[in-house]
Amino acid sequence: MADLKKLSEKTPENELKKHIGLKASRTIGNTLIYILLIIMTVIWLTPFVCIVLQSFRCESTYIVGYVIPQQWGLDNYKALFQTDFPIWYRNTLITALCVSVLQTVIVLCMSYTLSRFRFKLRKPLMKFMLVLGLFPGMLTMIILYRVLKDLGLTQANAVPGLILVYIASSGMGYYISKGFFDTLPKSLDEAARIDGATRAQVLTKIILPLAKPIVIYTILTAFMGPFGDFVFARYISMNTSKGMNVAVGLWSWLTPDQVQYKYTMFCAGGVLVAIPVTILFLCLQKYYVEGVTGGAVKG
């Protein structure tokens, strides 16, 4: 009722609508929104476009004041493969893939347990992990370095060390997937159990197929963390080229005496790093959004 009343009032907005008609006003609105979106897109994309363009610049290697290369070519990409870049890339991929698999398994098991099982320490455990999660991870950096060094997992052996660091506390990241599992009706479990399924079978055969978005979301976040990590990776590789990941390796080209010779290669490296992540996101985009919002709906 109130809405109807509003429309009949003589507000300037309503006046406008009357004069130009519904269709036209929608067109105007859309146009404005699209202009806004285009402006935002340009702002968003400019740095990426610049990096891509710089990576094809062949006439010089230092930072210059223009964006469009005068001489196009793949020199920077070729040069990239003369350096340790392939090793860094391999390290990064190995780390990210291992972590995404292991972390996903751990997180899903954890969430399933906390969502479906009832045991005495369940609540205290969840509270404990919540409190533990409040401490910044960076606090542990120095002691972790020491421990890994004593295990021989730093410098050239940084990759297993890093994997260990990333998956070590991953069980604590169960919140979103547990939230999602909680929304799945418990009667499904019960039915399966009555039919003779074990707990593990319930998880793999019943829950996981239903929880596809959350699984993919977990894999994605687990992959992205190590893929872009810099701080831990830098400490643990400790200037040893063989143990660096891409972020650390590319960063090492940014010293004042290096950047003049490596800037365009740095851009090329950046483009190559972006490729797998972009593909991954494009393919899994719809699950990602479902996953992020899925856990929020509590049953």
């Binding site: 370095y145 730093t154 200037n239 090492s252 010293t255």
Partner: peptide, 18 residues
């Protein structure tokens, strides 16, 4: 290993053994 002269001290001091 490639380590810039400007960073050498910072890296050395962080972990002399390494």
């Amino acid at each position: 290993e490639a380590v810039g002269e400007g960073d050498a001290a910072t890296s050395m001091i962080t972990d002399v053994e390494a």
